[in-house]
C-alpha cells in the first residue's frame, strides 16, 4: 500500500477594503470574489477530512506581510493536518517567517526562477520535505529549440513555458526540465498549475501533469482548472499524487468527503 492520493483545498487570501483577511477566488482570471474567512474555511476543510491545506498570500503589498503572518498563525492554530504556505516567498528569511508562524511546508514560485540556488539553501537548512516548488506554466505552440514536446488531448504538440509573476511573464524555460532541476536542487514536491486551465473548470491540464509526474520522483500536485470530481480522478490516474482545488470547495460545489467517496466508488483510495 502506497501513501494515499491527497485532496488539498487552497485558500487564496488577501485583505478586503477594511483590512480584514479574506479568501478570494478569481473567476476566469478576472474579478475576485470573496469566499470567506480563512480561519473558518480552514476549520471546515479539516472537518471534511482534507488531507492537507495550502494557504496562498495573494495580497499585493509587502507592507501587509506582518499582518498576513498573523493570519497564517491563526490558521495554523486550527489546522491539525499538514499546512503549506506560499505567496510572496522570496528569501531565506521568508521561509523562517512562515515556518515560525506554524507552516509545515513553504511554497516558492517566482523567486525560485530568479534565484534557483535558494532552493538548495532552504532544502539544506529546513529539509526537502518542507520545500514545495510551485511551477506555473503555459502552452507554447511556436517551435522551441530543445524544448520538450508534449502531445495534447487533440493530438497537437506543444511545449510548456514556465511563467512567473502570476502568469504575467513568460520565461522561456521548459517546465519539464525545470521540474527536474528543482528536484535536483532539493525540492520536496512540485505544485503544478497550468495557466491555460486555471479558473476555467475544464479540468486539470493532464498532458503536462503526466509529463512532469513521469519526469520526477517527487510528488506532483495538480492545480488549476478543476470543475468536476471526474477531473480529480483523471489527474490521479495520470500520475498526480495530490489534487489542489479552491472554488469547488469554497462555493460548496463538492465537499472533500464527497470527492473521497466518489474516488472510492471508482476503486481509488
Amino acid at each position: 500500500m502506497m501513501t494515499t492520493k491527497r485532496i488539498i483545498p487552497c485558500l487564496d487570501t488577501t485583505f478586503d477594503e477594511s483590512g480584514k483577511a479574506v479568501v478570494v477566488k478569481g473567476i476566469e482570471f478576472e474579478s475576485l470574489r470573496y469566499a470567506g474567512d480563512p480561519v473558518e474555511l480552514a476549520r471546515r476543510y479539516v472537518e471534511q477530512k482534507a488531507d492537507e491545506l495550502v494557504f496562498l498570500d495573494i495580497s499585493a503589498s509587502t507592507d501587509d506581510r506582518a499582518t498576513m503572518t498573523d493570519v497564517i498563525r491563526r490558521v495554523a492554530d486550527v489546522v491539525t493536518i499538514p499546512f503549506c504556505v506560499g505567496g510572496g516567498i522570496a528569501s531565506f528569511s521568508d521561509f523562517e517567517r512562515v515556518l515560525g508562524a506554524g507552516a509545515d511546508k513553504v511554497g516558492i514560485n517566482t523567486a525560485a526562477v530568479k534565484n534557483p540556488e535558494l532552493i538548495k539553501e532552504v532544502a539544506g537548512t529546513f529539509g526537502s520535505e518542507k520545500i514545495v516548488v510551485a511551477i506555473d506554466c503555459k502552452r507554447r505552440f511556436e517551435e522551441g529549440d530543445g524544448k520538450t514536446a508534449v502531445e495534447l488531448e487533440d493530438g497537437r504538440s506543444a511545449w510548456y513555458d514556465v511563467v512567473i509573476y502570476g502568469g504575467k511573464e513568460l520565461t522561456g524555460i521548459d517546465a519539464i526540465e525545470w521540474a527536474q532541476k528543482m528536484q535536483d536542487l532539493g525540492a520536496g514536491e512540485i505544485l503544478l498549475t497550468s495557466k491555460d486551465r486555471d479558473g476555467t473548470k475544464d479540468g486539470y491540464d493532464i498532458p503536462v501533469t503526466k509529463a512532469i509526474a513521469e519526469a520526477v520522483d517527487i510528488p506532483v500536485i495538480a492545480s488549476g482548472g478543476v470543475g468536476t470530481m471526474d477531473h480529480i480522478y483523471d489527474a490521479f490516474v495520470n500520475g498526480a499524487d495530490a489534487c489542489l482545488a479552491a472554488s469547488i470547495f469554497h462555493y460548496e460545489t463538492y465537499t472533500v468527503s464527497e470527492i473521497k467517496e466518489y474516488l472510492r466508488g471508482r476503486g481509488m483510495g
Binding site: M1, M2, T3, T4, R6, D51, S128, E129, G188, E189, D217, I218, P219, D241
Partner: peptide
C-alpha cells in the same frame, strides 16, 4: 519515493 510523505494506514 523517499521520503515517504503523506497519509498511510
Amino acid at each position: 519515493k523517499i521520503p515517504q510523505m503523506g497519509w498511510n494506514e
